[in-house]
Design a protein around this nucleic acid. Structure first.
Lengths: 210, 210
DNA sequence: AGTGTTATGTAACAAATGTTACTGCATCCC
DNA sequence: GGGATGCAGTAACATTTGTTACATAACACT
């Protein structure tokens, strides 16, 4: 495992911390679609992402969903962090967007490292900063953009985290992420196709201008 | 100043830290409507709120606004924190919602205290956590609620931070905060009045069921 | 090939929100 | 008093988004 950690985190963490992570962390490989965190559950370990992407969703009381943001290599889940440190319940849902490799670190180590390693503190602060910015960008999208631009932004974000400008999702799946209806997505996708932004096929969408 | 600090932060910070804050911090009193942070500006000190309330807004490129959340006594601005620690530009705008008293702490001390005081670290982590939760609650409102419920929630939040169920704002001001138009707010307020939730007067709105 | 299932396309309509325009009413200032 | 100004009420209409219903196309399985 140590090599995986070093490849991805050696410029972030000092050797001693890398060694500790190697000793207490457990390597985990999850397939696309795997549910990593359920809303309302307590969390016993936090993930460091080695490869792949995780999507973080918000769910309301009626079970309606909304995509908050994606996590990628070198990221960690700020909500998990704050849940661990503050001993709160999870407020979000996490699903593997692609096959992913993670290192799970037990929460007991978190506070200890916060005191012990400056690089860990900075990593944690930086994660919070990034997630706050991303949450605010999500607010920007919902508040200031119309659905067609939100959709285009969503498609572009997807091509980025999947490193593939073919998106293998149904219109219904996209509708869930954007919290709207399938018909609306079909309608707008057709418009985007006519404008030359995407090419539509069954079960997949090709994004033209990335 | 030391007394003001102690009154508001003594259960959070150890005496030694309180003493440091007293030495390096500057006391600041601002009137309602005062602009504390402009978007795009660099920040040289962070505020600890002693009394009053601050509203945090997001502004898009066209100058359109949206209320993110309020800060109250014992709070600090997480965006300021992360701007200071990460040396980024401000992503938000901060306006005094009421007359407010603050202690401004120079940013150089922030990192130092992060290493030195456990209580400061916890305060910073906790601030991030709260703000992330509030940003996500704002997302909930925009994504899952219709404008009438958003408006009612807004009015209730306002009565809470102002500790007064009379709201002294014009419909236009409310429209800016919720990023909609004055006519929409007037229409919905009238509906809320008919439903018995508010009582409308000139320049002020009385919230009935808090 | 035949059948059932799923994904997509589309029309027609409903509801929510945004826009424009105009009115009346306080308040302020002279 | 009389005019200017800012705020609120409301109608009429446009646009965006949501909903229902149905048709067609692709695919999966036998």
């Amino acid at each position: 495992m140590i090599q995986e950690i070093k490849n991805n985190y050696k410029n972030l963490f000092e050797d001693e911390l890398l060694e500790e992570i190697n000793q207490v962390g457990t390597f985990k490989e999850v397939p696309e679609g795997f549910e990593l965190i359920k809303p309302g559950s307590y969390i016993k370990s936090m993930p460091l992402i080695i490869s792949g992407a995780i999507k973080i969703l918000r769910e309301d009381n009626d079970g309606d969903e909304l995509l908050l943001y994606f996590l990628e290599r070198g990221d960690t889940c700020a909500m998990t962090l704050s849940c661990c440190l503050g001993h709160h319940k999870s407020e979000i849902k996490a699903i593997a967007e692609t096959d992913a490799k993670l290192i799970m670190v037990p929460i007991e180590k978190m506070e200890e490292w916060t005191t012990k390693y400056k690089s860990w503190r900075n990593f944690v602060f930086d994660s919070y900063h990034k997630r706050l910015i991303e949450a605010i960008e999500t607010i920007d999208s919902i508040a200031f953009l119309k659905m067609d631009d939100r959709l285009l932004k969503y498609l572009k974000d997807k091509t980025k985290v999947n490193q593939d400008n073919i998106i293998n999702n149904t219109h219904q799946e996209i509708a869930y992420d954007l919290h709207t209806s399938r018909v609306v997505i079909s309608r707008l996708l057709k418009k985007l196709e006519q404008e030359g932004n995407v090419k539509l096929n069954r079960n997949n969408i090709e994004v033209i201008h990335i």
